[in-house]
């Protein structure tokens, strides 16, 4: 099985290269388009290599916009996405970490009830409670705000259960040693549990950052004014106008590349941690 004849080995590599080419084609062509003037692919052969307009297009998309066509610069959308992704990732981790700590290291009344309430969130994605969630958020005055973009989706059963599982592997003797050394629960949390869970926190942060960055339906509901649009949902209006015939596909693709860049960069630069986080959250 390992090794094999040269011919079959080459075949495997060939299939893989073709497969990867197909998988990456959409991203590559989007990049190509983002470096060329909009007229380059309207007629004639489709270009397969980057063109000269890299700086121009990214400048237009980020800073100048295309006011004549009603295209706003997307810089602020990227900023909104960044804020949303960071707050969601950090918030979910913080909230879930302390919840898991409470569930793992305390026995108290309503412990089981609390567990079930958290568990229920697994079964209630935004899609199944869409109108009333919007109504609650609106009545709390959270529409068009960072709080509205983040707080309503900041609870996480998955993260809570993951942390609890991590905590269960911390030896009881460590807790006892810390108790004898005079550490109360909060000091134990800060001095022991947090540093011992660092890697898990980092892995989970990557997953949750991508989750937050890629949100679509929720920002669509909560932002009724352009000021708080995130790039992943904001690009949809650009694309709509482009597919209706306006000659701005190159700016749409420029924006698309900008929108996918942060998550891809994170996944690639921290691949080991990312894979670990992915596998852990699904356990």
């Amino acid at each position: 099985m390992v090794g094999g004849r040269l011919g079959s080995r080459l075949l495997v590599h060939a299939i893989l290269i073709v497969g990867i080419a197909v998988m990456l084609t959409p991203i590559w062509l989007a990049f190509v388009v983002s470096t060329r003037p909009g007229s380059d692919f309207m007629t004639g052969d489709f270009p397969l290599w980057p063109g000269p307009d890299f700086v121009k297009n990214y400048r237009t998309a980020l800073i100048d916009g295309q006011p004549g066509a009603g295209l706003q610069p997307v810089g602020h959308m990227l900023w909104n996405s960044l804020v949303m992704a960071l707050v969601i990732a950090a918030g979910k981790i913080a909230i879930s970490f302390i919840s898991a700590f409470a569930i793992a290291w305390f026995r108290f009344p309503f412990r089981v009830a609390a567990f079930w309430i958290i568990f229920i969130t697994l079964m209630l994605p935004v899609e199944v409670r869409i109108l009333p969630t919007f109504a609650v958020t609106a009545s709390l005055g959270l529409l068009n705000s960072y709080a509205g973009l983040t707080i309503p989706i900041i609870a996480s059963a998955t993260a809570t259960f993951l942390f609890r599982q991590v905590f269960m592997t911390i030896p009881d003797e460590l807790t006892e040693a810390a108790r004898i050394d005079g550490a109360g629960p909060l000091r134990f949390l800060v001095d022991m549990v947090v540093p011992l869970s660092r890697t898990n926190v980092a892995a989970l942060f990557i997953i949750l950052f991508i989750y937050g960055w890629n949100q679509y339906l929720w920002p669509l509901l909560v932002t009724t004014e352009p000021g708080y649009e995130t790039v992943v949902m904001g690009i949809q209006r650009l694309a709509q106008s482009a597919s209706e015939g306006s000659p701005y596909w190159h700016l749409v693709m420029t924006t698309a590349i900008l929108a996918m860049l942060p998550p891809i960069a994170i996944v690639l630069s921290m691949r080991k941690l990312f894979v670990r986080g992915l596998v852990e959250t699904e356990k």
Binding site: S99, A102, W105, I120, A155
Partner: peptide, 29 residues
């Protein structure tokens, strides 16, 4: 959902630690 064998005492602290998660869950879920 078992707890650790070695646990801390008290009721107020764990409930306070759970409060943010439970509040968001109840209000928005």
């Amino acid at each position: 959902m078992q707890a650790k064998r070695v646990t801390f005492g008290g009721t107020a602290l764990p409930l306070a630690l759970l409060a943010p998660q439970l509040a968001v869950t109840v209000v928005f879920f």
